[in-house]
Design a protein around this nucleic acid. Structure first.
Lengths: 141, 141
DNA sequence: CTGCCACTTCAAGTCAACTTGAGGTCAAGC
DNA sequence: GCTTGACCTCAAGTTGACTTGAAGTGGCAG
């Protein structure tokens, strides 16, 4: 039974964020002392998982969907695996983009558009131009 | 000399975004017919580079910083290389995070915090808990 | 018992990257 | 010459993840 400032200190997550996470249903307090929230130490683990998800670029909503119905620290393992696969794809994509950057940095073509390699990479990286930029970017670290 | 709607069609980037990019100094029109902007075809290449940068997770401001002072299509190659290296790190990080997700999905420990492996991975991935979450996330695809 | 102050709620602000809307302009087709 | 409608500008709205601020409350040290 720790209070919000302890939790903030121990987790590095600001109290305001902890309240916000509770409001969003990502963590829960186990009771109150007066009007002050009391948390179980398990939320520290939950916060690790949340940080993991955020770092992986998932939204709070998506992360919320990974926890089994409100209780405990259990996560939906299938969803986690799914997310890991999504990350595989993102990594692959970023790898192509990195290669495109490196190529762009060293390719001597006066106009990159004249470089087949550039056009190929850009296309392979799945950036539109001509196919429009779908894939609205989401946050990641 | 193409007008904004042609450019929008050819690039897949909405006209409103093109105006916004011009305002932000990421692209420029070469003149006006009446009050309508006229663009050079080179902006198509510039837009590819912008899309590339956005996909790599860089802000418009950062991307703006990659172009040599306003003119042409030239990019600052050093900055590009720098960004490629930043991407290398991000890829490495995401790889660890992906591994952490996969581990979390299959690790049978009742509480992940009791699993050394989990604690190690989370720590290695550079998510705070105890070291606080610095690295304010930025956008990427 | 009293007062402090960390906690509370709720509303509003912030930031990035756009989009939307209102109101205005003007090149071109008839 | 007039209408049309795509384009213009500028201000305001949107979304996600928070932060900040004002105003209120109540546990606990003295």
């Amino acid at each position: 039974m720790i209070d919000i400032s302890d939790l903030a200190k121990r987790s590095g997550v600001p109290a305001s964020t902890l309240r916000y996470y509770e409001e969003r249903g990502l963590i829960q307090s186990v009771g109150r002392r007066g009007l002050r929230r009391l948390f179980d130490e398990h939320v520290l683990e939950r916060l690790s998982l949340i940080a993991l998800g955020r770092a992986a670029g998932f939204s709070l909503e998506e992360i919320g969907g990974m926890f089994k119905q409100g209780q405990g620290v259990a996560v939906d393992r299938d969803k986690l695996t799914e997310k890991a696969e999504a990350l595989d794809q993102q990594i692959e994509r970023l790898t192509m983009i990195r290669d495109a950057l490196r190529h762009t940095a060293k390719c001597p073509a006066p106009s990159h558009m004249e470089c087949k390699n550039f056009r190929y990479i850009v296309r392979a990286a799945g950036l539109g131009l001509l196919p429009p930029l779908d894939q609205p970017p989401k946050r990641s670290a």
